[in-house]
Simulated assay, not measured.
Amino acid sequence: MSQRVSINYERDGREVRGLAAWRVLEHFGGQADEDVLESIKKRLPIALKDFPALAHETINVGVLYENADAQAQAFGYNRLICLPPEEHTTNVTLWHELGHVAIRVRHENGEDVAKTSEEFCSIYSVARMPPDVIDEDRVPYLGEPSVPREEWPNICQRALEYRENNRNYIQQCKEWLGI
């Protein structure tokens, strides 16, 4: 059974409202520790509101298998994020994986996004995070910033704007973050 969350965003100067849905797949729900499952159920609707591209999509939560070479994985083409069932996933990682799916959706809609770049995904995701939910000391695939966490989202938003006319946006973002 899927849950729904309302997403409000602006497009072409007008407010748009949409619904994003999410569901925990049976194999994740059956394997996840109770506190891990409750944490995901609580945080996923909050995170989805930061990704307008996911309005009208259903995000599936599946199991990250033990032999995976990552803390989590996303498969944007089937709107799937895979998380470890026995351990807590940080907000930074959760937003990052949702970022992969949102980037895939935007690519399918013909937008200019770097669909295979982990660095772009990190910048894109952190740019959407409210500063109070950042719960790591590093930005995945970029490093440890020396500036306060409260500044990370604004710096990443600036880097995305900078990307519109500059190819070195990742290096510039790292410089602004003090990495």
Rank of each mutant, 00 (worst) to 15 (best):
L83C: 07
V92R: 02
V63L: 10
L19K: 05
A20G: 04
A53V: 02
Q73F: 12
V92K: 00
G110F: 04
S117W: 15
V61C: 06
Y65C: 05
V36D: 11
V105Y: 04
D33C: 09
V126L: 08
T89E: 01
K49T: 13
P52E: 07
R128D: 03
C121W: 04
E164V: 15
I59T: 01
R149L: 11
K41C: 11
L64D: 04
E38C: 05
W95D: 06
D112Q: 10
N60D: 13
P153H: 08
Q71A: 06
I81M: 08
V105Q: 02
R128I: 03
A20R: 08
V24R: 02
V36L: 14
E26H: 03
A53Y: 09
E151R: 09
T90V: 12
E161W: 13
K174G: 00
C156M: 01
R128P: 03
R163T: 06
E108G: 04
G178S: 03
D33Q: 14
N165E: 15
R128F: 00
G110K: 06
A32F: 04
I103Y: 08
H107Y: 12
G30T: 07
C173H: 14
E66D: 12
Y141T: 08
R104Y: 11
R158A: 09
H56I: 01
D137C: 02
P52C: 01
D50A: 11
L83V: 14
V92C: 12
E10N: 10
D137S: 09
E34A: 04
Y169T: 05
G13E: 10
I179W: 07
K41W: 08
I155D: 06
S39L: 14
M129G: 07
H56R: 11
N109E: 15
E26K: 06
N166P: 07
E118N: 10
